[in-house]
Design a protein around this nucleic acid. Structure first.
Length: 319
RNA sequence: GGUGGGGUAGCGAAGCGGUCAAACGCAGCAGACUGUAAAUCUGCCCUCUACGAGUUCGAUGGUUCGAAUCCAUCCCCCACCA
């Protein structure tokens, strides 16, 4: 009763690269503690893409509650903002929540806030994407000079970022004559006030690679190709179309590669993803790592996670 | 046994007398990134006491001021003919 009013929503976070075993730990704990598991994974959001995205099984879902899953059709466009919108209400439930996932951006947005930055401008984007890099760069320098100057050297060479700052600038200047208001709207900065400590699962490189290989093998055994066969009939969104595992499965179905090559490529792409995830976690988040090798049975690992959570307390969200 | 093609950095593949430590792609490593994030982008990637130096282009020997690039011999591959 006391707190009923406006407790900032909070949750316990479990991060880690693909195949690090987050899901199993979250599942284990939720089965016993009754928490709701919110997935923070940019591919788990697609309905009908289950095997290749390592979505919790029907059995698992029978024993624990999940959110953040099956939020969109594979033909839909999706974005961080869609994710936040979809997931926001679940944090109001008052239930204890475990956020488990590997999409760093989603996690950072949950914990550090995501500004009300203008959304995609479909028409403008289409126009800009048709440009060659030089023209795009020129337009960004001229029409979005303010945001352009804030980009890092690296990002200035990233066409997607240039498209975005042009979209944001267009929205910002169209928004209102009120200079201050529009600045706020399109400037976007992480809320540096809080950079909470999250708990993460870390697996040694070799061990992780082994797990990835096994996982890919298992996905095919579970019928990834069959799932892909259904999906390929749809007009998939660009994001769904390139999903790891699926893109390669599609190539097999279209007779563009052999099964072996597809598996191999899937393993490689998964490894590359895991690496990028770790880079993000290392540099964008503040993570207390738990080395899975040191906590052998799942039970011990879960206990380690849970005591790390206790130590830091629940993370309050900026949503 | 004969003829033709070929052996280049972890892999694939350019180079065919100097401007070559050797294009490019892949893999690998590190990094950036607020509405596509399983995306997109950047740097590094023979060795070292590293804005310089030292070893490389199947092996050995030669021709040249100078060779991955030319010649000779040898060792392996592949194709075809016997």
């Amino acid at each position: 009763m006391l707190s009923a009013k406006h407790h900032a929503p909070c949750a316990f976070f479990l991060v880690g690269p693909t195949a690090s075993g987050k899901s199993a730990v979250a599942q284990y704990l939720a089965e016993r503690g009754g928490q709701l598991i919110v997935s923070a994974d940019s591919m788990n959001i697609y309905r009908g893409m289950d095997i290749g995205t390592a979505k919790p099984s029907a059995v698992a879902r029978g024993k624990a509650d999940y959110a953040g899953i099956d939020l969109a059709e594979p033909t839909d466009k999706f974005s961080v903002a869609s994710y936040l919108d979809a997931v926001r209400p679940t944090f109001e439930s008052g239930r204890e929540i475990i956020v488990s996932g590997g999409t760093g951006l989603y996690i950072k947005c949950l914990t550090e806030g995501f500004d009300d930055v203008p959304p995609e401008n479909t028409a403008l984007r289409a126009e800009l994407e048709a440009l060659d890099f030089q023209s795009l760069e020129k337009r960004a320098q001229e029409e979005a000079s303010e945001l352009y100057s804030q980009l890092t050297e690296d990002d200035r060479q990233n066409p997607r970022r240039l498209v975005r700052i042009l979209e944001r600038t267009a929205a910002g200047s169209a928004a209102s004559a009120d200079r201050q208001a529009s600045r706020l709207r399109y400037e976007g900065r992480w809320n540096s006030k809080s950079k909470p400590t999250l708990v993460g699962l870390r697996v040694g490189r070799e061990a992780l690679h082994k797990r990835i290989e096994q996982r890919v093998e298992q996905m095919y055994a579970e019928g990834l190709l069959g799932e892909a066969e259904e999906l390929i009939k749809l007009d998939l969104s660009p994001t769904a179309l390139q999903a790891i595992g699926y893109a390669e499965a599609f190539a097999v179905l279209k007779n563009e590669t052999t099964l072996e090559e597809a598996k191999e490529k899937t393993v490689i792409r998964t490894r590359q993803l895991a690496k990028r995830q770790m880079t993000w976690f290392r540099n964008q988040l503040n993570v207390e790592w738990i080395d899975t090798a040191e906590f052998q049975p799942l039970e011990k690992l879960a206990a380690a996670v849970s005591s790390a959570w206790k130590k830091h307390g629940a993370t309050s969200l900026e949503i």
